[in-house]
């Protein structure tokens, strides 16, 4: 039976992990490669690297990081953040990433999804969709761009369906209402998107406790769940989370 996936997300800046990663067991707490190895060994099903490097000059750091990670771990990983076009994607995939995610660039230029899926295959094109509650939208949620700063006027479900039609192979759905709250995933948003499209949905934003994962898989119909700080701060231990989910009837690896 296909397992529900648990995906830690690592924020990377200038080739180093940021955001309070504090593992005493690591020799170098900023080493994305070491952290990736740690998560891979404790049962993470996939990893997402989110590149938040601000300066254009340092953007090559992500490519060398990807190359190093692909030599080290044997589970799939996605790279997102700041990807604008085919050249960026080509460099990251050639360095060994399994998938890339695009967000604002796809909103500004939806044809990018077609070009990427035709050239590289749908399986490696993830649409990162940031959504915020907006009662005036048909689905009740609006897609937002630029890390949540820019409203787009696009209905989140309509955008998800369009992205699927244009060739996205997966949707990484982040609730901007829940992100950082540790108040639980946006179960309603996740269910609306996941049950109305035919590609897998990764739920993100709001994980605080193990029960949150259970409810986003059961009521939210998510195919995978992503979190960052609860894993980085050891608040949730992945093997323990998997034991809990398995005991609750969720298929996990």
């Amino acid at each position: 039976m296909l397992a529900k996936r648990i995906i830690p997300c690592l924020d990377v800046k200038d080739g180093r992990t940021v955001k309070g990663v504090n593992f005493v067991s690591l020799r170098d707490a900023g080493s994305a490669v070491e952290l990736a190895g740690f998560y891979s060994s404790c049962g993470a099903d996939e990893l997402v690297f989110l590149d938040i490097t601000a300066t254009v000059e340092k953007r090559d750091t992500i490519v060398s990081l990807v190359r190093e990670v692909s030599h080290t771990i044997s589970i799939p990983f996605t790279v997102g953040g700041g990807i604008r076009g085919e050249e960026d994607v080509d460099r990251i995939l050639s360095a060994g990433a399994d998938k890339i995610s695009v967000n604002s660039a796809a909103i500004r230029n939806p044809e990018l999804l077609e070009r990427l899926s035709q050239r590289f295959g749908s399986q490696c094109v993830v649409l990162a969709l940031d959504a915020r509650s907006n009662p005036s939208m048909p689905s009740g949620y609006e897609a937002v761009a630029d890390g949540g700063r820019t409203p787009t006027g696009l209905d989140a479900l309509q955008w998800a369906s369009e992205a699927e039609a244009r060739g996205a192979g997966e949707i990484l759905l982040t609730s901007m209402d829940k992100d950082g709250t540790r108040d639980g995933f946006a179960v309603d948003l996740t269910r609306i998107i996941s049950t109305n499209i035919d590609i897998p949905v990764i739920a993100s934003g709001g994980a605080g406790k193990m029960e949150d994962f259970l409810s986003v898989f059961t009521a939210g119909k998510a195919d995978a769940a992503l979190a960052a700080s609860v894993f980085h701060f050891h608040e949730i231990d992945i093997p323990e989370l998997k034991r809990y989910l398995r005991a609750s009837g969720i298929p996990v690896r």
Binding site: L2, D45, G169, D198
Partner: peptide
């Protein structure tokens, strides 16, 4: 079911 079939399966 979702297509592609993606993830860990037995």
């Amino acid at each position: 079911y979702k297509i592609p079939h993606v993830g860990w399966n037995t």
